[in-house]
């Protein structure tokens, strides 16, 4: 006995269930909507740190208590308008070098190499880089993180789990020597720590060719690339010298010390809208 002619739902649903292509198309449309609604606007709205070729970053306006908008070049470093015009260099420090508080800048060659090691070792699985706007997080870690601070982070590193503490503002909090000791054998410094020993980073030299290529890749990103005015031809050409003789340990420490001190946050300014 067949009852295949009978509708158990609606005629439309019944038609869908009989036609493979129709069901495929409708399903493909249904699963696409959510992503389009949530993702696409983030490339056009303010407060999303889309600063590509746009000094206003999609018209982002962080306002102070008087309601005055903070100029975006106070938040995102612009060598054309800043008093400091060059990326900081360990090999050849200049008085014109970027200083903490000058605004968000891309990573230096050594920091870039360190960031690669950071990703390789899966550090982000236990250490977040995203401070939320809560009192306890402010007391523990510092000012809440803002969108602009991760605009050059290709593959963001906000993390999802704090098995260890947040490190969004760890830069400058400890000395290089502390980091070196702690990274090598964490339990020598913090007995309760469950972090693996990363002593082997000291044995690995930095690959200068790879670092140079990474900087080039960063200028080619389709969204938020590092401007050519920052990674200039000469900076990229000098990258190998910046990492010469450095180990992965030096690089990771340089990366950690660069985290979270780029922007000078002012009292009373709402940086979230």
């Amino acid at each position: 006995m067949s009852d295949h002619g009978k509708f158990y739902s609606t005629k439309f649903q019944d038609t869908i269930e009989r036609k493979t292509v129709l069901m495929f198309v409708l399903t493909a449309v249904a699963v696409a909507v959510g992503g389009i609604v949530e993702i696409v606007p983030l490339f056009y709205l303010p407060n999303t740190a889309m600063c590509q070729n746009d000094p206003t970053c999609n018209n982002t306006q962080h306002k102070d208590l008087q309601g005055n908008a903070i100029p975006m070049d106070k938040i995102v470093w612009n060598p054309k308008t800043s008093a400091h015009t060059t990326l900081p260099s360990l090999a050849n420090p200049q008085p014109t070098d970027w200083q903490p508080g000058d605004g968000v800048r891309p990573y230096t060659a050594l920091e870039t190499a360190g960031r690669q090691v950071f990703i390789r070792e899966g550090c982000f699985l236990c250490h977040s880089q995203m401070i939320r706007p809560f009192r306890d997080e402010k007391d523990r870690y510092g000012h809440y993180s803002i969108a602009e601070e991760s605009m050059y982070d290709h593959t963001y590193q906000w993390g999802s789990k704090r098995t260890g503490p947040d490190i969004a503002r760890v830069g400058g909090k400890y000395s290089d020597e502390w980091h070196r000791k702690h990274l090598k054998y964490p339990r020598d410094v913090v007995p309760e720590s469950v972090m693996p020993n990363f002593f082997f980073l000291e044995k690995n030299p930095i690959d200068a060719v790879k670092t140079t290529k990474t900087l080039e890749v960063m200028t080619k990103m389709p969204f938020n690339p590092v401007p050519k005015t920052i990674y200039t031809e000469s900076y990229i050409a000098g990258a190998a010298k910046e990492v010469e003789g450095k180990t992965e340990m030096d690089a990771v420490i340089a990366y950690l010390q660069s985290l979270g001190n780029h922007v000078k946050f002012e009292e009373g300014v709402n940086y979230r809208d």
Binding site: I39, L42, A49, A147, E149, Y152, T155, Y156, M218, N224
Partner: peptide, 11 residues
Amino acid sequence: YSIYSGVQDAM
């Protein structure tokens, strides 16, 4: 390296 960064990449 992901072609997206920061907020967009997170989303």
